[in-house]
Design a protein around this nucleic acid. Structure first.
Length: 152
DNA sequence: GCCAACGTTGGC
DNA sequence: GCCAACGTTGGC
């Protein structure tokens, strides 16, 4: 089993939205590095750390689980979607989604500033300077450290 | 709101 | 293929 971190702006889609929806296709990712992870590496049963970016404060908000592996991102084909990409089409899809299901909303979200102080999280992609990747790999050690911080 | 870091685009 | 210009991300 592998571990990942998905970023979302809570204004756009928060852990509460995921809880209400129970599960969701993770659509709208328009970055090739993230796309490759979604398409090739993220498997059913993998665990996902749900992170709130551009939030006050930015923080780990909870956990989700991958329930469905990659298939083409339909929002790229929809001219009315804000994620529409004319260069993608159903015969040759450029963008992919996986589906995730809500697992846990942390009682107390873990602020980014706290993550920075944790030795076990040294080297975490999220903490690297200038890191903007919205879908990123997390090690088992990092995942466990975060669960421990959350009291889970 | 600022701005550093990064990714993409497009002219050459 | 280079690289300047531009757009976006996301912490502060």
């Amino acid at each position: 089993m592998n571990y990942w971190l998905f970023k979302s702006e809570p204004n756009a889609y928060s852990i509460d939205d995921l809880k209400a929806d129970k599960s969701t296709p993770w659509d709208g990712v328009r970055n090739y590095q993230a796309r490759n992870l979604l398409r090739d590496d993220i498997k059913k049963g993998d665990m996902v750390i749900f992170y709130h970016s551009n939030a006050e404060p930015p923080a780990v908000a909870g956990l989700a689980k991958v329930i469905k592996e990659a298939y083409p991102d339909a929002t790229a084909f929809d001219p009315t979607s804000k994620y529409f990409d004319p260069k993608s089409n159903p015969e040759d899809p450029r963008w992919y989604v996986v589906e995730i299901a809500h697992l846990k909303t942390f009682q107390h979200p873990i602020p980014l500033a706290e993550l920075k102080d944790v030795k076990a999280l040294e080297g975490m992609v999220l903490l690297q300077k200038g890191s903007r990747l919205s879908v990123q790999p997390v090690t088992e050690k990092q995942f466990k450290a975060i669960c421990k911080m959350a009291g889970e």
